[in-house]
């Protein structure tokens, strides 16, 4: 492979979009109102679109005869590099929103840096993504406020979701070897640098939504090294079903 670090690095970014897009896609037709179904699908479509751009680029970087779909569908679970946060299930709408917001804030900070990457393709994808993700964050942030400061029931549910998902936030800033290599080459984003802004921004919004900021010393990691939560296997069973059942066919 021409540049294994870069290839891995692209996959790390893309898998977050792929897996979150997949989770949102599961919801289509099952949300609390037609309007939210349409909004959720839009976000999912943005994420799948980003995924395709990244994977098409990764396929080129690989120097092999790979397609975007080979990369998306034909890896083993241990080879998916998304963070644990995005694979968490649609337990209820509060979880959907909390997962989205906790990721969106990171995602936007991340793309804002990635646009200055020395790698022109990544920079271009980031620039396009910034507009999309700004909207995602606006959508999820507004909903955090509505649910947090809505009814007693919604407040409890929203708090529950934030508390449960909080432990996956620190992983967002974990640096893999590929991350480090890419930062040193001026291509990748130095994640720990984003951490303070992230928690400041999230905390401010949670407070506005009358929610408590979880106090937690212990966090969960592993996604970036391919060690996922138990939910991931089922997500992949769905995602990969066709490609695994009918190998080597065009669709």
């Amino acid at each position: 492979m021409a540049n294994q670090n870069l290839y891995n690095y692209i996959l790390g970014i893309a898998d977050n979009s792929l897996v979150l897009g997949q989770r949102l896609g599961e919801l289509c037709g099952h949300g609390p109102s037609l309007e939210t179904d349409i909004a959720g699908t839009n976000i999912s479509l943005d994420l799948i679109g980003q995924t395709r751009s990244y994977f098409q680029y990764a396929a080129k970087v690989s120097g092999k005869e790979l397609t975007e779909d080979d990369i998306a569908f034909l890896r083993l679970e241990r080879d998916y590099r998304n963070v644990l946060l995005v694979e968490q299930p649609n337990t209820h709408f509060g979880y959907v929103i909390a997962r989205q917001y906790l990721f969106d804030v990171f995602h936007l900070l991340f793309l804002n840096e990635l646009q200055y990457s020395k790698d022109e393709t990544l920079s271009a994808i980031a620039k396009k993504g910034i507009k999309e993700v700004s909207y995602h964050k606006r959508f999820s942030g507004d909903w955090i406020k509505r649910l947090g400061d809505g009814t007693e029931e919604s407040h409890e549910k929203m708090q529950e979701a934030v508390d449960d998902l909080w432990r996956y936030t620190d992983e967002l800033f974990e640096m893999s070897e590929d991350d480090q290599q890419m930062v040193s080459e001026g291509i990748g984003v130095d994640l720990p640098k984003l951490k303070e802004s992230y928690y400041d921004e999230v905390s401010e919004l949670l407070s506005e939504a009358t929610l408590e900021i979880p106090e937690r010393k212990y966090f969960s990691y592993g996604g970036k090294n391919g060690v996922h939560t138990e939910h991931m296997g089922y997500l992949l069973a769905d995602l990969q079903y066709m490609q695994r059942t009918y190998p080597n066919m065009q669709w």
Partner: peptide, 20 residues
Amino acid sequence: SLHAADAEMALENARDVYTR
């Protein structure tokens, strides 16, 4: 037209429904 709880949501829904 569409349904929304507040103006902000109406604007967001309108964007998603009518300008996709």
